[in-house]
Design a binder for these strands. Structure first.
Length: 589
RNA sequence: GCGGAUGUAGCUCAGCUGGAUAGAGUACCUGGCUACGAACCAGGCGGUCGCAGGUUCGACUCCUGCCAUCCGCACCA
């Protein structure tokens, strides 16, 4: 309908140009908006205001001429424009006929789960990379927001006709993972009966014990060494007056030399597999699935290649024994090291290779969802893309702010150091997947968010998840009630009697569900699932209001079926919307 | 210091990319079940859109400068 109106306006403008009432050399952007206020009709256009200046005419005068032409044309088309009005400074308001408003109902019932989906993305290949937390421990509530947001964005893009590839970048290489492997080994040694002070910079969570225990059961004393040998000549840890980084690095080296590279790999992989498996399981339980878990380790050869490529194109230089990328050439604050003076490549070097790899796989758009603390990273990655001759505009980075947990008005303290942080799994168990998925995406990504556990758990209208699900369940229960009365919903009869829907509530509901496809497409393109959550709240509210003011099960068979038919269309839209957010649409609660 | 994000009702947040009288929820006040589910609805109260300029027919929205809060600014990942 919107497009149709835009077409009407366009042809009216063309006509005025031909008759020289408008200058021939202007081509204004035609915009048709949904009205905010019902008294302004269904749609509105500001075209007369936009044209007033170039035409040198009063906006309202211009609007009158445009309306004459628009009405003439739409009457000929018979597409359901009932009338137009000129309002305010010169807006043209469009009123759509009742029949036309309700025509969306059969469309929804026919499309079912497909209703709202579009081909706006034209099958373009898009990658969404999200969560990508280091596999050094279980996911915590901060990762949960990225997971919920990323999954919803990916599903929205998919619904909008993009070919979506969901990916998790597994940091299975690097120093942090070596620290994890060494932590596992030390816990394993403790299980073998050795006694020593655990390094303060090691991973101290309970899950490390679990992994060590499995290792111990599977390999017995294969990796065992005495505490004396292990700590011989190791520099002091921080509590003993030393440097914790030096201490842990020495332990990593000692571990490798005592058990050898191949056994170190076994210990390393037991840590990696244990934790990555846990993360995968956790996300799967959260309704978050990936096409690919991309291993950082698999990049090792291409890291050297990409450094060579940058070297050859003159973007690198040596300074103080290290190899630097001249990212300042592309707007970064400072140049960045890609290879350290000890010969190891940096994490940034891996990331350059990884992003190059992404584009080599043919994605037209690459979306990275990162924690807000990574924002300083964007400039250097985009700089690297430019240096490689790639288009940095094809990379979109969405930063997700952290969520602060509250229990009622009390802030929940999270501390990684003490190992007492709240895990995503604990959150899911406490508030449920539906509430967690929904709450995480009700705020736009860059908004700081207060996540109230009590509210997420509450079963009342305070809780928007229940409010929306309740609307869905209510419609289902009408059908059940009908069945109890030995009656049935007759869809064909309902569709045939749609004209019996004459209430304002019913018009509102119909135009609300008619907007759903547009809402969906906007959410997808703007990467904003929160707009969908607000839309669903409004739709549920409209339905509850209708339900409370008028009975659906009435004597008049035609009216009864028509009302239920409308209800079923609403139910379908709620279910479709919730599904895209990873939230269930229960038939009873 | 530099860069980014945020600032809208007492509180938590929307505001459709520049449109009409700035909206929800919550809190508070009033009313509605012998009812297809009250896990709901109807009404009321509540605002200098951080501040000051600028752009134009028109600004919460765009530009500039301040103020406040948060986050970044590694040869760590």
């Amino acid at each position: 309908m919107k497009d149709y109106i835009a077409g009407l306006i366009q042809s009216a403008v063309d006509t005025l140009k031909e008759s020289n009432e408008l200058p021939a050399d202007i081509s204004p952007k035609i915009s048709v908006d949904n009205t905010r206020d019902k008294s302004h009709g269904d749609f509105a256009s500001n075209i007369a205001l936009v044209l007033a200046k170039p035409a040198g005419k009063q906006p309202r005068q211009l609007a009158v001429r445009l309306c004459e032409l628009i009405i003439e044309q739409s009457a000929a088309d018979g597409k359901g424009i009932e009338k137009t009005e000129i309002a305010g400074p010169g807006f043209i308001n469009f009123f759509v006929s009742s029949a036309s408003s309700f025509s969306v109902i059969p469309e929804i019932l026919n499309s079912g789960e497909q209703y709202g989906r579009s081909n706006a993305g034209k099958g373009k290949k898009v990658q969404v990379e999200f969560v990508s937390a280091n596999p050094t421990g279980p996911l915590h509530v901060g990762h949960g927001r990225g997971a919920a947001y990323g999954a919803s964005v990916a599903d929205l893009l998919s619904a909008a006709g993009f070919d979506v590839h969901r990916e998790y970048y597994v940091n299975d290489a690097g120093r942090q993972m070596n620290i994890l492997a060494t932590s596992v080994w030390l816990r394993y040694l403790e299980l073998q009966g050795e006694q020593f002070t655990f390094p303060c910079n090691g991973y101290k969570g309970d899950y490390v014990f679990d992994i060590a225990r499995e290792l111990s059961e599977k390999y017995q004393d294969k990796f065992a060494h005495s505490a004396e040998t292990v700590f011989l000549n190791i520099p002091d840890d921080e509590p003993a007056g030393g440097d914790k980084e030096v201490h842990i690095d020495a332990l990593i080296a000692r571990c490798k030399s005592l058990i050898g590279e191949s056994d170190f790999r076994i210990v390393f992989d037991s840590g990696l597999d244990g934790i990555a498996g846990d993360i995968k399981d956790d996300l799967g339980g959260f309704g978050v699935h990936y096409q690919n878990w991309f291993s950082e380790r698999s990049l090792s050869d291409s890291i050297d290649d990409v450094i060579q490529q940058l070297q050859d194109s003159g973007h690198l230089y040596e300074k103080e024994g290290a190899l630097w990328f001249r990212s300042t050439e592309f707007g970064d604050d400072k140049d960045r090291v890609v290879k350290r003076d000890n010969g190891e490549t940096t994490y940034f070097a891996s990331d350059i290779a990884y992003h190059k790899n992404k584009f080599e796989r043919g994605f037209t758009q690459v979306i990275n969802i990162w924690g807000a603390d990574h924002h300083g990273y964007i400039a250097r990655v985009k700089a690297a893309l430019q240096a490689l001759g790639l288009n940095p505009d094809q990379l979109t980075v969405k930063l997700v702010q952290f969520a602060i947990l509250y229990r009622g008005s009390e802030r929940v303290q999270m501390s990684t150091r003490s190992g007492s942080f709240v895990t995503l799994r604990e959150l899911r168990e406490e508030v449920g997947n539906d509430a967690a998925r929904f709450f995480y995406v009700t705020r736009k990504a860059e908004q700081h968010m207060d996540f109230d556990l009590e509210l997420a758990k509450s079963e009342s209208k305070d809780n928007p998840v229940y409010y929306i699900q309740y609307a869905h369940a209510r419609i289902c229960s009408v059908l059940k009630k009908l069945a109890e009365q030995d009656s049935n919903w007759d869809k064909e009869n309902g569709l045939a009697n749609i004209e019996k829907l004459t209430l304002e509530n019913e018009r509102d509901l119909a135009s609300k569900i008619a907007k759903y496809p547009e809402v969906l497409t906007n959410c997808a393109i703007n990467l904003e699932p929160h707009v969908l959550t607000h839309y669903l709240k409004e739709l549920a509210s409209d339905f509850h209001s209708y339900y409370n003011s008028h009975k659906m099960i009435v004597e008049d068979e035609g009216l009864r079926n028509a009302r239920i038919t409308l209800g079923m269309a609403v139910k379908q839209v709620i279910a479709n919307g919730l599904n895209l957010l990873g939230v269930s649409a229960p038939e009873e609660m």
